[in-house]
C-alpha cells in the first residue's frame, strides 16, 4: 500500500463562498476632510521605575519640550515610583497594599539601576558620577520637565493596585487617567515611546 502523499492527506476542500451580491454601487468615497489631529508631539509611557531607563525617558522629554514639542508622560506600574512623594504614606487600604508600600516606598531619589544595582550602592555611585558631569538626577529632571510644561499623567488603575492615592503622588501630576487618555494623546503624537 502506498502512503498517501502529503498533498493527498485530508485537507478538506474549502467550499467556495457564494458570490457576494452584486454591489449596489461603487464603494462610498472616504471623507474628504482628514479629521485626524495634526501629529506633532511626543508621548512617553514610563512603565519602568529603573533609574537609568527613567533618566533616558526624561532626557527625551526635556529635549523635546525644549524643542517646542508638546510632551505627555504617562506613568504606570513601576513608573509611578518616579512621581511618588519621597515621604508618601506607607499605609495602604489593606494589609497587602501596606506591605507593598513598605517593600516599594517609591520616590524619584530611590530608584534602582537596571544593572550594577548592588543593593543600592550602584545608584549612589551613579548619582555621584552624574553630578561630576553636571547631569541632573531624576528628581531634578522631574522638576525641570514640569517647568518646561511636560504633561504628567498618572495611571489610576496601577495606582489602585499598588495602594497609591493622589495624596501619595507629587503635586505636579496634571491628570489621573487611564488608557483612553493615553491613546488620545498618542494618536496626536508622531513620537511615541514605551520605556
Amino acid at each position: 500500500m502506498v502512503a498517501p502523499s502529503p498533498s493527498a492527506t485530508s485537507i478538506p476542500a474549502v467550499p467556495t463562498p457564494p458570490d457576494p451580491p452584486a454591489a449596489a454601487g461603487p464603494l462610498p468615497e472616504p471623507a474628504q476632510a482628514d479629521l485626524r489631529p495634526v501629529k506633532d508631539g511626543v508621548t512617553i509611557v514610563v512603565f519602568s521605575g529603573d533609574f537609568d531607563r527613567v533618566q533616558a525617558a526624561f532626557n527625551i522629554a526635556v529635549g523635546a519640550a525644549s524643542s517646542g514639542l508638546p510632551v505627555t508622560m504617562f506613568f504606570t506600574f513601576w513608573g509611578l515610583d518616579v512621581i511618588t512623594r519621597p515621604n508618601a504614606s506607607r499605609v495602604g487600604r489593606d494589609p497587602l497594599r501596606t506591605a507593598f508600600r513598605w517593600l516599594k516606598p517609591g520616590g524619584a531619589g530611590r530608584l534602582p539601576l537596571t544593572r550594577f544595582n548592588f543593593l543600592g550602592l550602584g545608584p549612589v555611585l551613579m548619582r555621584r558620577l552624574m553630578g561630576q558631569f553636571r547631569m541632573p538626577a531624576v528628581d531634578q529632571m522631574v522638576e525641570l520637565a514640569h517647568s518646561l510644561g511636560v504633561r504628567f499623567i498618572a495611571c489610576t488603575i496601577t495606582m489602585g493596585v499598588m495602594g497609591l492615592t493622589e495624596a501619595d503622588l507629587l503635586p505636579i501630576v496634571d491628570a489621573y487617567a487611564g488608557v483612553a487618555t493615553y491613546l488620545a494623546d498618542a494618536r496626536g503624537s508622531d513620537v511615541n515611546l514605551f520605556i
Binding site: 532626557n59 526635556v62 529635549g63 525644549s66 524643542s67 517646542g68 558631569f133 553636571r134 547631569m135 541632573p136 525641570l144 518646561l148
Partner: peptide, 11 residues
C-alpha cells in the same frame, strides 16, 4: 553640561 542641558538652556 551634558545632553540635554545645552539644548534646554539654548531654548
Amino acid at each position: 553640561f551634558l545632553c540635554p542641558m545645552p539644548i534646554v538652556k539654548l531654548a
